[in-house]
Design a protein around this nucleic acid. Structure first.
Lengths: 140, 140
DNA sequence: TATTGTTATACTCTATAACTATA
DNA sequence: TATAGTTATAGAGTATAACAATA
């Protein structure tokens, strides 16, 4: 059975990404969160007051798709959406959101450390700069 | 605006993967193909007679989701599904499928070369082994 | 005029269960 | 018993268009 795609970096990139995300998802779902939600909690924790659209821009999630996600986190009592600008909503975590964000942070940290350790030492430090070169939107 | 995720290899892996796949998709759609379809054409070209489920196993696509994809390629006259085993369907490309597979191959080759060239030379050769270490299903 | 948030909608991808027929 | 293919279905994720309110 020949796999002609095994030598394509783009293909292997996708497979590695899918596998990693699936694994993280199973670890984060025990906290009642999806990976995207965990990501949002982390970013809002670090950037209290950030607007929904600014958050969406960071994560490449469009305004229209951001709305139900943010509304769900608010409905669960994890996040508040406070009118800041008149048209903008500033996001901040509730105490419960802060607590959950910290738990998610611990899970993600552990996972990322494991991921890194799976890479043979001689290649380890090269992964991040290589990936960043393939991710165009790293101007911010 | 602080992005606390920028130092997570898993996160950057996902962003790089998404960006690369989106770019490839725009190049391959002009052939009337999705990336997965192009992938299938390439694999069937290299492995004529491969069964639907074996193909699905290679690509991590479940049997149930493989059915409509293969049926669509057959309906477009790109692929044939021949009963081989009694319960299995052996896949092979039609001449038109072969032709399109070659065009797709050229697009993918060019894209993958460009991808590789975007990586700074000192990191370039490390990407593939690092990614393979993160992709568990590389036993075949 | 441009931006923010919202609603509605559609399409893709993925996951599961249940069924048949074959090995 | 296990495998191959199918059907139906549901859940995510993503994309676009249109609208009201505000800058």
């Amino acid at each position: 059975m020949r796999d002609p795609l095994l030598h394509y970096p783009g293909y292997v990139l996708r497979r590695a990404s899918t596998a990693a995300m699936a694994e993280l998802a199973t670890r984060i779902v025990v906290l009642g969160l999806r990976t995207t939600e965990a990501t949002i909690l982390q970013i809002v924790a670090e950037n209290p007051g950030i607007s929904q659209s600014a958050l969406g821009r960071m994560l490449d999630i469009q305004r229209a798709n951001m709305t139900p996600i943010a509304a769900r986190l608010e409905a669960r009592g994890l996040m508040r959406r406070l009118p800041s600008d008149g048209r903008s909503l500033g996001l901040e975590l509730t105490p419960e959101g802060q607590q959950l964000a910290e738990k998610a942070q611990a899970v993600v940290d552990a996972f990322e450390t494991e991921l890194t350790n799976r890479i043979p030492p001689e290649h380890r430090d090269h992964l991040m700069p290589a990936l960043l070169a393939l991710w165009p939107s790293t101007d911010g």
